[in-house]
Design a protein around this nucleic acid. Structure first.
Lengths: 341, 341
DNA sequence: GTATAACTGAGGTGCGCACCTCAATGCAAG
DNA sequence: CTTGCATTGAGGTGCGCACCTCAGTTATAC
């Protein structure tokens, strides 16, 4: 037999096609005995469902939605591009992807937006938004309405019943710590730490991971308190100037936020910081170029293309009531140097 | 219109379904005018083929084959597992994957094996085998017989018409060089380099990449001539002992080969090499454990799971006469530290 | 025992497309 | 004009499965 079909399966199991269908699709009104006979026959003849036929017969269009921030810099742009790429590629797979750009830092607005998503119009939602109790509740309600949720690349407390796509930020921070610690060697010194804002849970976790490694493994180094740029170029220059004046042995800088353009520009322009080792997060056109030209020394990244595709695969699996393949969906913490860009 | 079908397309283009079919599948006997009308209608109504229906109608089973070495250590095992995983997952996608394990280091045997592959029984072949003129010819002949070839993770000269899955080994070596160079700091010292054999093109390219970085960027370090273990534990211990006796300032070790168990064990056991920085290639249960326990300092890796899935996607695309999505198929050179394992 | 619920089988339809046949039309060369 | 070939349309079949209906059967409760 070339490739057994459901009909062959029915024959092998000694039941009718209708019963095979009931078993395969978990429909009610099947006796334990019939179910067992079908299961055994599946093993015996090596029946494997033809997913193409399933998809065609179901004739279901999967509708997934990405909820992303409305403002950001290059990293957000990168992400949007990856989503629209995936959207194009997956159209032929009966999958339609839409993007909502929301002021995700306004919990009220975000919650309202999530509440307005209709169960009928969407099978899964991937949300990238900062932590807040209100948002967490809105996400829970979303799931209770039967919409599959993916917490996407963002620093929310993990909801037990939701899937998560992204890296462990504590580990990412620890990785940055290891890199900086090893790159600096044995001489003592201080490490400047810069973030857009320390309200973001991502940054907090990275900072904790970073500190844990520096304190344990590199006690001769000292990580300074986090500076916050609030995404403002001149403020960044000012606070960095201030720190440099107060500390004369700054040997490294670690940028916690995914958008590194503003802090790195400020650092590069400061005369006293030409020789510091700089580590940032996320690959963007800016950080890539900075790594090439030596303005920074390493990037800790998570591939946004992988992340998007992974989120879609997970939502797709959930929509089909399957479990995602965990091993395949793990997003790696990448360490990028000039040589492996 | 929910989702336009070929019938809708025919209507919009003002032609028959038969002509639409001819255009969509590049069949002969279509006038330029008809073809243009269909193309325009595709744009106009946003027609996208339903791949599930295509797959079902074609009812074609894709048969792909991996040709892998018959002997190896943990890295080979890892690879075999990933292939069999993919094989299981893809059965429902009408894709059957088989594995041939051949003494790939015997060009004659390998060539004969490749020559024996029938066009009828296989749509694509992924070959992992070392360089040799005879093998290269056999691969060319394979392609001329219409079988799609993927050069898989191996150090062959790239054939222009074949696809390649794997990393740039020169860059991988350079990355190792950068890591070791930065980890060692400014003090001068020597770097021991170990390989199973330097006949393998992978090792040669890595060595070249490594040297280029060390020589240019870290001139105070010196990379010693490559040692060859030939996969023999006692020989490894002996040659390493020999090198240690002749050089008293060895500060790092770099293992070129994918199988690192034997050289790293020898290094760990040597009293004078307890503090050297060790960098190896490929993640295996052994190298992972060694990184965790601090016996090695970094792993330069390429994810075998990704590689396998990528090879399959490429063979699938070629079998459908599509082009693979290059951006998605690029295998990254990963830098693994204890923190981002 | 009977009433009821739980199960089972037979059969049909349709998903969107590939692939095939056959007849009909157009067009150019001679 | 005829011959021959390229082009086009109409129509049909089948891929493997989901989903539906309805009649018939078996187990269970009372």
């Amino acid at each position: 037999m070339i490739r057994p079909t459901a009909k062959d399966l029915a024959e092998a199991a000694g039941v009718s096609l209708a019963t095979v269908d009931r078993v395969l699709n978990d429909r009610p009104n099947v006796s334990a005995r019939a179910s067992r006979k079908v299961q055994e026959a599946i093993e015996k003849i090596g029946f494997v469902r033809n997913l193409a036929a399933v998809a065609l017969a179901r004739n279901k269009i999967y509708r997934f939605r990405f909820v992303l921030p409305s403002k950001g810099d290059q990293y957000l742009l990168e992400l949007l591009q990856r989503v629209s790429e995936a959207s194009r590629t997956l159209k032929s797979d009966l999958t339609e992807i839409t993007v909502d750009q929301i002021a995700t830092d306004d919990p009220y607005q975000l919650s309202r937006h999530l509440a307005a998503i209709e169960t009928e119009e969407v099978d899964g939602v991937a949300v990238m938004a900062p932590e807040s109790p209100q948002v967490r509740d809105a996400l829970s309600r979303l799931m209770m309405r039967g919409i599959h949720l993916v917490q996407f690349l963002s620093g929310q407390e993990k909801l037990k019943t939701a899937d998560f796509v992204g890296v462990d930020n504590f580990a990412a921070g620890a990785t940055a710590g290891r890199i900086i610690g090893r790159f600096l060697g044995n001489e003592p010194g201080k490490i400047m730490i810069v973030a857009e804002t320390m309200v973001a849970r991502d940054s907090i976790e990275r900072r904790r991971g970073f500190d844990s490694i520096i304190n344990e493994q590199f006690p001769h180094l000292r990580a300074l308190p986090s500076l916050e740029t609030y995404g403002d170029q001149s403020r960044a220059a000012a606070i960095i100037q201030n720190v440099v004046e107060r500390h004369h042995d700054i040997r490294a800088a670690y940028v916690l936020s995914p958008e590194s353009r503003i802090p790195v520009s400020a650092i590069s322009q400061h005369a006293d910081l030409q020789k510091v080792t700089v580590v940032v997060h996320e690959r963007t056109p800016f950080s890539e170029e900075a790594l090439r030209t030596g303005r920074i020394d390493a990037i800790i990244a998570q591939d946004p293309g992988h992340a998007v595709r992974s989120a879609v695969r997970i939502m797709r699996a959930r929509a089909d009531l399957r479990d995602p393949i965990a091993a395949q969906e793990k997003i790696r913490i990448e360490v990028l140097l000039k040589e492996n860009l």
